[in-house]
Deep mutational scan, measured.
Amino acid sequence: ELKKVVALYDYMPMNANDLQLRKGDEYFILEESNLPWWRARDKNGQEGYIPSNYVTEAE
């Protein structure tokens, strides 16, 4: 089971490997080892790295 998180803030990608975050949207965490960058997937199936301090665990 993948960990689900909710974006606390918008995040615009800095490079091609990053994933855009939209405040309030849910994302699945694929990999937590790259702290403070986590690999995530959005609801459309896009994958990339996000800043872990921009998300919180979903209820």
Rank of each mutant, 00 (worst) to 15 (best):
V6D: 02
S52G: 11
I50E: 00
V5G: 02
N53K: 11
V5C: 04
I29M: 04
K23D: 02
E26R: 08
V6Y: 09
A58S: 12
G48I: 00
Y49K: 09
A7Y: 00
R39I: 14
S33R: 08
K3L: 07
V55K: 01
I29Q: 02
V5H: 03
G45S: 06
R39L: 09
N17K: 09
Q46F: 11
I29V: 13
N34I: 13
E1D: 06
L8C: 10
K4C: 04
A7M: 01
G48T: 00
E31V: 06
L8D: 05
L2I: 07
M12V: 11
D25G: 08
A7K: 00
K4A: 05
E57T: 13
K43I: 15
P51C: 06
E26N: 07
P51F: 09
S33W: 08
W37R: 15
Y11C: 04
N17H: 14
D18V: 09
N15K: 12
M12N: 13
E47K: 06
E31Q: 15
N15A: 08
A7S: 05
E26D: 09
E26P: 10
L35P: 13
N17G: 09
A40M: 03
R39W: 10
S52F: 06
A16D: 15
S33E: 10
L30P: 02
T56N: 07
P51H: 10
Y11M: 07
N34Q: 15
D18P: 02
E57A: 11
E26C: 07
L8R: 12
N15Q: 12
P13H: 02
M14E: 14
G45K: 06
V6C: 06
K43E: 13
P13M: 02
L35N: 09
Q20G: 13
M14S: 13
L21N: 01
L8G: 03
N44K: 15
P13L: 01
D18T: 10
T56K: 14
Y11K: 14
Y49D: 10
G45W: 04
L8I: 10
P36F: 02
M12P: 12
P13A: 07
R22H: 08
K23Y: 05
Y54P: 00
E47C: 07
Q20V: 07
K3P: 03
E47I: 05
G45M: 06
V55W: 01
R22T: 10
K3M: 13
K4R: 08
A16H: 11
T56Q: 15
E32G: 10
E31K: 11
S33G: 11
K3G: 04
N53E: 12
Q46Y: 06
L30T: 10
D42N: 07
E31N: 09
S33F: 12
L19W: 01
Y9S: 15
D18H: 15
W38A: 12
L35M: 11
N44H: 09
M12D: 10
W38F: 10
A16P: 07
A16M: 05
K3Q: 03
P36G: 07
L2A: 07
Y11E: 02
D42E: 04
K23Q: 08
E57D: 08
S52P: 13
R41K: 10
R39G: 02
Q20C: 09
Y54G: 15
S52Y: 04
E31R: 11
Y54D: 02
R22W: 07
L2M: 09
Y9V: 14
I29P: 02
Y11V: 03
N34D: 15
L30S: 04
W37D: 06
Y27F: 05
T56C: 10
N17D: 12
D25R: 08
P51K: 06
L35I: 13
N53G: 10
E59Y: 06
Y49W: 11
N17W: 06
T56M: 14
D10G: 05
E31C: 10
I29W: 00
D18Q: 14
L19N: 01
P36T: 07
Q46S: 08
Y9K: 15
F28P: 02
A7P: 02
L35Y: 06
P51W: 05
L2S: 08
N17V: 08
R39A: 04
M14T: 11
L21Q: 01
N15G: 15
S33Q: 14
L35K: 10
V6R: 07
E47H: 04
Q20W: 06
N15D: 11
I50C: 06
N44Q: 12
E26F: 11
A58N: 12
V5M: 05
I50Q: 00
L8P: 02
L2D: 14
S33Y: 08
E31Y: 11
L19F: 02
V6L: 09
P51N: 06
G45L: 08
M12C: 15
M12F: 09
E57M: 11
V55C: 07
N53W: 05
D18W: 08
P13W: 01
Y27W: 00
M14F: 14
E26A: 08
Q20S: 13
F28E: 13
E1H: 04
N17Y: 07
R41Y: 03
R41E: 03
E31W: 06
L30E: 06
P13Q: 03
A40L: 04
L35F: 14
D42I: 00
N53R: 11
N34R: 13
K23V: 08
Q20F: 04
E26T: 14
L30Q: 05
P36A: 14
S33A: 14
I50D: 00
V6E: 05
R22E: 10
D25L: 09
L35R: 13
Y54S: 14
A7H: 01
S33H: 07
P36K: 14
K43T: 12
L19M: 06
R22V: 15
R41S: 06
G45E: 05
R41I: 05
A40G: 10
Y54V: 04
I29R: 02
I50G: 00
L35S: 10
P36L: 07
R22D: 05
I29N: 01
L19V: 03
A58D: 07
Q46N: 13
Y9G: 11
Y54K: 05
P36E: 11
N53Q: 10
A40T: 02
I29C: 05
Y27G: 01
A58L: 06
R39K: 09
A40K: 00
P36W: 05
D25I: 04
A16V: 10
E31M: 14
N53M: 08
E1F: 07
Y49Q: 15
V6P: 01
G45P: 00
K23M: 05
D18G: 10
N44G: 14
W38M: 14
E47Q: 06
E32F: 04
L19Y: 02
K23E: 09
K43H: 11
A16F: 04
V6K: 11
K4F: 04
K3E: 03
R22L: 13
N44W: 09
M12H: 13
E1K: 10
V55E: 02
L2K: 07
R41T: 07
M14P: 13
E59H: 09
Y11S: 05
A58R: 11
M12S: 13
M14C: 07
A40N: 00
L8E: 07
W38E: 07
L19A: 01
M12L: 14
E59M: 05
V6N: 04
L21D: 00
D25Y: 07
I29K: 03
N44V: 09
Y49M: 14
Y11N: 02
D42M: 02
D42P: 00
L21K: 00
A58F: 12
L30F: 10
E57V: 14
K4E: 05
M14G: 14
F28H: 08
R39C: 04
L8A: 06
F28L: 13
L35W: 12
D25A: 10
A7T: 01
K43C: 10
N34P: 14
E47L: 05
E31H: 09
Y27I: 09
L2N: 14
K3N: 06
D42L: 01
A40V: 09
A7L: 00
N17Q: 15
Y54T: 03
I50T: 01
L21S: 01
D25P: 00
A16K: 08
R41W: 04
Y49H: 08
Y9T: 15
I29E: 02
G45H: 06
Q20R: 12
L35T: 09
E47P: 02
K4N: 03
L30I: 11
E59F: 08
K43G: 13
E31F: 13
Q20P: 10
E59R: 09
A58C: 09
W37F: 12
I29D: 01
Y11G: 01
V5D: 00
L35V: 12
N15R: 14
K3A: 04
